[in-house]
Deep mutational scan, measured.
Amino acid sequence: HEITLHINGRRVKLRFRDEKAAEILKEAAKKGLDEEELKKLAEELWR
């Protein structure tokens, strides 16, 4: 699955395995994680 989040006016595509991962990524984006941090988090969730 993929999700596209808008971060600092940019579109960031993240891959994720399940809905739980999608929710975690959305929450992290709301908390203000930047693009690099979100990509790292997405990679961690993928494993």
Rank of each mutant, 00 (worst) to 15 (best):
K39A: 08
H1C: 09
H6M: 13
L33D: 05
E44W: 10
E2A: 04
D18N: 09
K31S: 13
E35N: 05
R11M: 15
R15Q: 08
R17Q: 10
H1Q: 11
L5P: 00
E37S: 15
K13S: 10
H6C: 14
G9P: 00
E43R: 05
E37H: 13
A21D: 15
H1K: 09
R11Q: 15
R15L: 06
D34M: 10
R17V: 10
A21K: 02
W46T: 03
R15N: 05
A21I: 03
R15H: 07
N8L: 04
I7M: 05
E27S: 12
E36P: 10
L45I: 05
I24T: 09
D34T: 14
H6E: 14
K39E: 07
K30E: 12
E2G: 03
E2K: 05
L38S: 01
N8F: 02
L41R: 02
A21H: 15
E35S: 07
E2Q: 06
A29V: 10
E43T: 05
H6L: 11
L25Q: 00
W46E: 04
R11H: 15
L33E: 05
H1M: 13
L41G: 00
G9H: 03
E37G: 14
L25C: 03
E44H: 09
A28F: 07
W46P: 01
H1T: 08
L25E: 00
K20H: 12
L25G: 02
A28E: 07
I3F: 05
I24K: 09
I7Q: 03
G32A: 05
K40Q: 14
D34I: 11
R11D: 15
K26L: 14
I3W: 01
K39I: 13
N8Q: 08
K39C: 05
L38Y: 02
I7K: 02
D34P: 14
T4H: 14
A29C: 09
L41Y: 04
K30S: 13
E27C: 07
A29N: 05
L5K: 00
D34R: 10
R11V: 15
V12R: 01
L38Q: 01
A28W: 09
A29S: 07
H6V: 15
A28D: 01
A22D: 02
R11W: 14
L38K: 00
E23Q: 12
K26R: 14
L25V: 07
L41I: 09
A42S: 07
K40V: 09
K30P: 01
R10T: 10
K13F: 03
K31Y: 11
L45H: 02
E36A: 10
L45V: 03
R47T: 14
A22S: 08
E44C: 08
D34S: 15
K31P: 01
K13Q: 11
R15E: 05
L25N: 00
R17P: 07
L41M: 10
I7R: 02
E36Q: 10
E36S: 12
H1I: 12
K20F: 11
E43P: 00
E43K: 06
E2I: 10
I24D: 04
L5I: 14
L14G: 00
L38M: 13
E27Y: 05
L45A: 02
L38P: 00
K26D: 04
V12A: 01
K26F: 11
A28M: 10
E23P: 02
E37V: 08
I7E: 01
K13T: 15
K26S: 09
R47K: 14
H6Q: 11
A22T: 04
E44F: 11
K31D: 10
E2S: 08
V12N: 00
E19N: 11
E19T: 10
R17C: 06
I3K: 01
E2T: 12
L41E: 01
R17G: 04
K26M: 14
W46I: 04
H6F: 06
V12M: 03
L41P: 00
E37F: 10
T4F: 07
A29M: 07
K39M: 14
A28V: 04
E27N: 09
L45N: 02
E44V: 11
K20V: 12
E43I: 06
